[in-house]
Each structure stands twice: as C-alpha cells, then as structure tokens.
Design a protein around this nucleic acid. Structure first.
Lengths: 249, 249
DNA sequence: AAGTGGTCTAGACCACATC
DNA sequence: ATGTGGTCTAGACCACTTG
C-alpha cells in the first residue's frame, strides 16, 4: 500500500519545464490563501515528496517564486509567504526637509462612494460606472503639507473602510497595513508612472503653494498576489522636492 | 601523468561559496579582456574540467554572472560576454513627438579639455583638477531641439575623441558605440538621478524655450565592467516631455 | 539535538542551433 | 551528426536557527 500524494500530478504543458509547473501550482495554493501571508510553508523535502519530484527540482520552483516576490526564504528558519508591501513607498520619489526621521503624517480630507469614471474604471479593470470608494488624502511632514493624493478603490472589496465605526482620523499614517487588517487585501506589487505639470488652483491652495506652481505627478496602479488591480492613485507634489535614482543594466 | 588544470585552485574564503569564488575568477578573466565583449567563452563542461568542479557548480557560477549582466547565455549556441549598452537609453525618460520612428539626431556644440571641477572630479572618481574632456551636445527629433547635454570624460582614456582627424560631425547619433570603437570603453551599467528645475537663459535659448521654463534634469554616472566610472553626464529637457514608469516589488 | 535551507557531486537525458 | 545550454535525479554534506 502506498501513501497518497495529493499534488503529484501537475498539469505540465510540453513547452513548460517541471519546476515552472510546480511553481505555478504552489503559487495557486498561495493565492488561494492556503498559507496566509507571513506564515511558513512546508519544508522543501516535504513538498518534494508531496509532488513526487526530486529535492533539486522543488528547490528550483521555490527559488523561482522567491525571485518573483511570492516567497521569502530564510536559511535555517524556513520558507515564508511574503507579506504585502507595507512601507511608505511614495516617499521614495520625494525629499522633504528632515523627512528621514519623522514618519509622514496622513489625513483623509474626503471619503465617498462614486460611480467609476472611464479612466478610473480602466485602471482598476472594472466596467464603467461600477461603484468605487474615493479618498482624498493630504500627507504632511513636520506639519508642512507636501503631497496631495486621490485614491480610488474597487468597492465591494473595500467596504470595511466605509464603516462609520472606524473614523478616518483613526486610520494611522500608512494605508497598506490598513488594507491588510480591515479588508484582507495585500499589496504585492505596484507600477508608478511619473510626469510633470502645474498645480491646479484647488490643489495649490491645499498645498500652500502658488497656483500654476510646477508639480510632479505620480499615477500608481497597485496589484494583489492574484494580479488583480486593487488601487488607482494619483499623487501631486512640489516638483522641486522630487528626486529619484534609477539603475540601468 | 595528469593534464594541467590551470584554474583549479581558486582562492576560496571560508564564508564564500565555491560558485561565488568561481564567478569572481571568471569575472576577472572577462574584465582583463581575455574574452572580448560579444565573443563566446568556453563551454560549461570545458570550464568545469578546467577548474576541477562538477558541472552543476560551474553552472551556478555562470548563472550568477548572467544575472549580474556580464554574460549572455543562449540555449544551443553558447555563452557570450555581454557587449556594452548601445541603445539610446536617455530617451527612455522623454517622449517627443513621433520619436518612435525617427532616430534622434545628435550634434556636438563644443569639445574641449578642462581641469575637472570638484563635482565632476568626485563623480568620475578623479583628483580635483585632473584633465577631462568636456562635450556639449544637442539632441533633436525631426529637426526640433529637445535635449541639451553636458558630458565629462576622463582624459587619458578618451584622448582618441580629441583627434582632429575625426571631426565631431562624423560621430553619428549615439556615443556609446563610438566609445567602444574609438576608445575601447564598454558601458556596462549606468545610474541616472532625476530632478526638476528651471531652464537657464542660455539653455533655454538653445532649446528654443522661454527662460525659466520648467525642465527635467537627469544626471548620469556610467561605469565600465571593472566598476570604474567612465562618464558623468548632465541632461536637461522640457519637463512636459518627461515621462517614466517604475515597477515596485 | 533536530529541523531548516544552502552547497556540491556525478551522472542521465532533453531541447536548441548549426553544419 | 555534433556541440551547446537546460532539466532532472538521488544522493551527501554543510551552515544556520531554534528548543
């Protein structure tokens, strides 16, 4: 009598390597939530036995998922599902005075549901007119306003953020941990698009800058582990505070 | 009697893996010029025999150098030393009208030797006052001037570019292939630093824009395979033509 | 001491490019 | 047909972390 090997048979296209098929199967188990973000997955040898492959082949699959940002391997400890992005990634583009020490403050200026306009629907992969949550947010450093953000979130998913029981004043200074705690949404990767323009009159008033002042514009699409776009964000800030470094290889 | 294995003994620190030491040894042979850029290096099995390691270990070393951009592996053909960057990488930051089709034109406005000022010397890793070649260069698309560049090159190395026998009018539209052909310098990687400001009066005149017009500033340090900085470049262009996309993982 | 991931070996066989 | 890099195996042993 032989032990049951539940994941041994992996669909394996002719042009696809075994380890790539294994990686896809493991990724599906991660995305499905079988192992929550931050938790450990079984040991290499155990997974190799489960799938009926050699240890080296399973290691190739795990290394692939690690390169793709789904897993975090730690020598002697184990292999863990990567938690979502949590830092203050927008501040990589701006340098405000003494921002290195103090964490940037955040205040929500507006929170309302909307029917998605064409641009927002396209960015989020929704049909036009579907319900979205719109946030207007001001970020400040040492009491000085510096970034103004418009954020759109697809709505059945982010409904917990509409609860009157959780006033926006209590949200804290980072949104992504809030998304994870309240809505179970983990931001896995993001794409930022950078351009320049002038501040509108209303934006200039909020940022305490003259109307028409040059500004940097950053548009962001954020995605969860399944590849679904879960945030569309538009940020403006003083062009003179913008600074970014790129490595070209 | 045994065959001589010239590279078998690799200095191998306790904390260093065998394949990392092999990669460092191979990189040294590449940097030294033993295999010129674009040429094939020996087959995996041959290198493994030379160094007295198993095939899989040599493959790890070669894959590492491939990830680092030193080698280009091609299934069925061989492993090749990567040629330097050759494209028009500055145009990744700007979108000018119909620039997709026509290659950008280049004209050298000035070419002269200088004693390196502090900022230039620091960027190139020279002592202050060492001799550098300074170029001023205008790039145009469809006859419209769009980018103005100041370029500093360390001087014993780039002396061939001073030859009166090669007038700047014959240099063509890309500098990096010129560096490779005339000076044997191959650009392996570059670091670009982006900021925003206003055009100076003279820059505005050259670009046919009003003085004080908002502009994007890109400062570049370019490095060869040995890690030496071989170019410091400062580029300005109309801020409204700037556009860039970043993936965050 | 036990369990984890990291390194290395010595082979077999496959897929691709070229002559 | 030959030579190249790509995949996979089945083991051994090492290095790191934790109880």
């Amino acid at each position: 009598m032989s032990t049951i090997l539940p994941f041994q048979a992996v669909t394996h296209e002719p042009g696809q390597s075994r380890y790539a098929a294994l990686a896809a199967a493991l990724k599906a188990r991660i995305v499905r939530g079988e192992w929550p973000p931050g938790s450990a997955i079984p040991a290499e040898q155990s997974l190799a036995d489960q799938h009926g492959v050699a240890l080296g082949t399973m290691r190739r699959a795990l290394e692939l998922l690690s390169e793709q940002g789904f897993l975090d391997r730690q020598h002697g400890r184990g292999t863990f599902v990567k938690p979502g992005l949590s830092g203050a990634p927008m501040f990589r583009f701006f340098r405000f005075g003494e921002g290195g020490d103090a964490p940037p403050q955040s205040s929500i200026l507006a929170r309302q549901t909307q029917a998605a306009k064409a641009e927002v629907a396209a960015a989020l992969g929704l049909g036009p007119g579907e319900a979205v949550l719109h946030l207007k947010r001001l970020r400040s450093v040492a009491g000085q306003p510096c970034l103004l953000e418009d954020i759109w979130l697809p709505l059945p998913l982010f409904e917990p953020l509409l609860s009157p029981g959780h006033p926006t004043a209590d949200w804290g200074d980072l949104l992504y941990p809030l998304f994870a705690q309240r809505c179970g949404v983990h931001v896995h990767r993001a794409v930022d698009s950078i351009g320049f323009g002038q501040l509108s009159a209303t934006a200039a008033r909020t940022l305490k800058l003259p109307a028409g002042h040059p500004c940097a514009r950053v548009s962001r699409q954020a995605y969860d582990m399944s590849g679904r776009c879960i945030e569309w964000r538009h940020t403006v800030g003083d062009a003179h505070a913008f600074h970014y470094t790129v490595s070209i290889v």
